[in-house]
């Protein structure tokens, strides 16, 4: 085999229709961005699943660590007053 290493990995994001965000569909290998985009079209939109595609080098993504999940997301845990259901409103009050 003459190619000794895999092509870089790309993450693929598909916008299924206008008005929706791009969502992660999966990943693929490609030598460059242009080929990644073409491969993504063939791999993830064979049945008209998308109207727009993003490809992002996997190495460009920085992820939060699952081990720090609790402490990392903890600041939001004790702030129930950020939700509308936190507040008690007298019965009968409308449009609130």
């Amino acid at each position: 085999m003459s190619s000794s290493t895999d092509w870089p990995l790309w993450e693929v994001f598909v916008r299924s229709r206008r008005g929706l965000s791009h969502t992660h569909a999966g990943s693929l290998h490609a030598p460059d961005a242009e080929m990644a985009l073409r491969n993504a079209r063939d791999l993830y939109t064979r049945r008209s699943e998308g109207v727009s595609l993003w490809v992002v080098p996997s190495t460009a993504i920085t992820a939060s660590s699952p081990d720090e999940k609790d402490s990392f997301f903890e600041p939001a845990g004790d702030k129930p007053y950020r939700h509308p259901t936190f507040y008690e409103i007298p019965e009968g009050v409308k449009h609130l």
Binding site: M1, S2, S3, W7, A30, P31, D32, M35
Partner: peptide, 16 residues
Amino acid sequence: AHEEGAWVRDAAAAYA
């Protein structure tokens, strides 16, 4: 198939 496709992979890598 894998061996005969090697030149395509090499060409794409060289282009990139």
